[in-house]
Design a protein around this nucleic acid. Structure first.
Length: 333
DNA sequence: AAATGTGGCAACCGCCTGCTA
DNA sequence: TTAGCAGGCGGTTGCCACATT
């Protein structure tokens, strides 16, 4: 059954609104309040569709709308909410006072989405794009022990580990117990994460409570765990780790929200620390992503106010580890 | 200076959902 | 139960300003 149009389009104006039309709409709504959009245009003396009036009001004329550039915190919040809610722009907008769903949608499509893509992050899944990882060359490297890498699974996106386990299985059928064990552990962690996402309302509340703290917390905690793990690696000290100076000071984390942790580990896929693009740092860990090989992981940049360049480097820092040719993996595996 | 390309954003379109008679 | 309606939502379009050639 076809639906009748929301309003009679004959003779109705389309396109950009004029100041006169805006004034009519504002004055009418100030007197009568929003609502009854079907009859509003006629009563307000506007040659517009009710839908058009509603859109104009909610997206542009509403007095509580915040105009101008999105702040860093707003941007961070949008990305985090999108990772949980997906393209539910109205739900995201409901948690960003003064911003409209249309504005957020536009900002996502024109800025954030492109930036994530540029940094090898899939804007839909919020995970590093596996198609950009040259895993085959890693597998072919005699110095790269993939089964040892499985021991570091807590640091890396579980999807990557699943893929690594699968690839390893195809390479080495002689260690099925290890594979099974690691794969089950990995699945457990991933399932916990999924369950946590199902309780998204709770998560969102927590996200709101921790908006400002969140980005630093993620990176600090993540880095702290990373440091603990690498300290267990023989012949590997924190001097090998970039920005270790940041860890020489006690971390002032304040309230640590446990929703960010999964069995003591960070939620893997949403790692959006700012990366320092300074290639002069002697990091042993750079990107696996060939397209961003000059971007090194830097905690210092996370702890300071990000610059525009750093914003451009918005990235998944855990996947920004690159294996230099000179590095022998056997030394610390 | 003109032509062309690109990005940003307001607005539109069509579908979906919930309410009501 | 069902059809019609209003409002809401997400995807897409098209205009405009600015940048580049």
């Amino acid at each position: 059954m076809g639906r009748s149009p929301c309003c009679d389009k004959n003779g109705l104006k389309k396109g950009p609104w004029t100041p006169e039309e805006d004034n009519k709409l504002i004055q009418y709504i100030q007197l009568h309040g929003p609502g009854n959009w079907r009859t509003l245009p006629k009563n307000a003396g506007l040659q517009r569709c009710g839908k058009s009036c509603r859109l104009r009001w909610t997206n542009y004329l509403r007095p509580d709308i915040k105009r101008g550039r999105f702040s860093f915190d707003e941007e961070e919040t949008i990305i985090q909410l999108h990772s949980v809610l997906g393209n539910k722009w109205s739900a995201i907008a409901a948690r960003l006072p003064g911003r409209t769903d249309n504005e957020i949608k536009n900002y996502w499509n024109t800025h954030i989405r492109k930036r994530l893509l540029r940094n090898g992050i899939d804007p839909v899944t919020h995970s590093p794009r596996l198609d950009l990882l040259d895993l085959s060359s890693l597998l072919n490297s005699t110095q790269f022990n993939l089964s040892s890498l499985l021991g570091l699974q807590a640091l890396v996106n579980p999807e990557v580990f699943r893929l690594a386990a699968t690839l390893l299985a195809s390479q080495n059928e002689s260690t099925p117990e290890l594979l099974l064990q690691k794969h089950q552990e990995n699945n457990q962690m991933f399932n916990s994460q999924l369950q946590n996402q199902e309780g998204s309302e709770l998560l969102l509340q927590k996200l709101q409570q921790n908006q400002i703290l969140n980005s630093q917390l993620q990176n600090q905690t993540q880095f702290f765990q990373f440091q603990n793990q690498i300290q267990e690696i023989p012949n590997f000290t924190t001097q090998n780790v970039p920005c270790s100076s940041s860890l020489s000071q006690p971390m002032q984390l304040g309230h640590v929200d446990e929703s960010y942790l999964m069995n003591g580990q960070m939620l893997p896929p949403q790692n959006y620390g700012y990366c320092n693009s300074d290639a002069s740092d002697n990091s042993n860990f750079q990107s696996l992503n060939n397209n961003s090989s000059n971007q090194n992981f830097s905690l210092d940049s996370v702890l300071s106010t990000p610059t525009e360049d750093e914003k451009e480097s918005y990235c998944s820092n855990l996947m920004k580890f690159e294996i230099p040719e000179s590095l022998n993996f056997d030394d610390f595996m």
